[in-house]
Amino acid sequence: MFEKLVEWDKQTLIYLNNLGSEQFDAFWLITTNFLTWIPLFLFIIILLYRMYKPKEGFWVFLSFLSMLIVVTGVIFFTKEYFGRLRPVNDSSLNNLLRVLIKPSDYSFISGHAASSFAITTLAALYLKKETKWIFLLLLWPILFSFSRMYLGVHYPLDILSGMLVGTFFAWMFYTMHQKFRAPYIM
């Protein structure tokens, strides 16, 4: 069963990665860069600032910061524990993938997927009363995560696991805030 899952993971990555073409490479290289998304982060901060008074905004900011610290730790320890080679570093896949970048750390779980889903899910949860369309923010981590397969640096299961981890921690930190902080706001 596990071998079939790993084989599916490899074949799906090969298929998705080979859908790419040189004319789209620059777009995906820009998409995968965290710096590209600074305007979105600023937009989220502005919306949070507008919605929350300074005292409560501090606690919201603290939940984001705490969540990112925890998610970063989970990503680091998971990668070290599983030690899964990135597809671009797997010699059995070298001739089958379009390689645009070649990171040397481990693959499982995707830090890009986990952190981007954590940030946007938590933002969407905090801002859902402000705007009904806030869940459109989730387009960012979807694009961000897909870019990692396009570039051949993550398997689909790395991405899916990262998405689940990020979403789980966003939900957990939001729930903790609602349970332990929100009732005491004056």
Rank of each mutant, 00 (worst) to 15 (best):
L29E: 14
L137D: 06
V71W: 02
M1V: 13
M67N: 02
P141M: 03
A26G: 15
R148G: 07
K179H: 06
T12H: 12
K55V: 08
N89S: 11
V70F: 03
T167I: 15
G166L: 09
G83I: 04
P87A: 11
E22C: 15
P141H: 04
L68I: 11
I159E: 02
R148A: 11
L35S: 12
W8N: 11
V153A: 11
L40A: 14
K55L: 11
W171N: 02
K53Q: 13
K129V: 04
L136V: 08
V70D: 03
M186C: 11
D90R: 03
Y155N: 07
R181S: 10
I45A: 13
H154Y: 08
G152Y: 12
Y49M: 02
F77Q: 06
Y106W: 09
N17G: 11
L164P: 07
W8Q: 10
E7W: 10
T78C: 05
W171K: 06
V153G: 09
A118C: 06
L139T: 11
L19P: 13
Y174N: 00
R84F: 02
V74S: 01
S104P: 08
V70P: 01
I159L: 04
V165E: 00
S116K: 06
I185Q: 14
P103W: 03
L85G: 09
M163E: 05
E22F: 15
P141F: 05
E130N: 01
M149H: 07
S92R: 14
L68K: 06
Y150F: 15
G73P: 04
A170F: 02
M67K: 04
N94E: 14
T72I: 06
S161N: 05
G162T: 00
N95C: 10
F77A: 07
I159Q: 01
T167E: 01
K79C: 02
D25S: 12
K132T: 11
Y49D: 08
L127Q: 00
E7F: 12
F180C: 08
T72F: 06
W140A: 12
L29T: 01
M163V: 14
L164R: 03
F108K: 01
A170P: 03
F180S: 05
L139R: 01
K132Q: 01
W8Y: 13
L85Y: 07
P39R: 06
L62W: 15
L151G: 03
G73D: 00
L85I: 05
F24D: 15
K179I: 07
I44Q: 03
F135T: 02
I38V: 15
M172R: 09
L35A: 12
I44S: 09
V6Q: 10
F135Q: 00
A123S: 01
L160M: 13
F41I: 10
R148L: 13
L93E: 07
L48R: 04
I185S: 14
D105R: 09
D105W: 06
G162D: 04
S145Y: 06
A170Q: 02
Y155C: 01
T131F: 13
S161T: 09
K128N: 03
L13Y: 09
L122C: 05
V88L: 10
F24T: 15
P39K: 07
G73H: 08
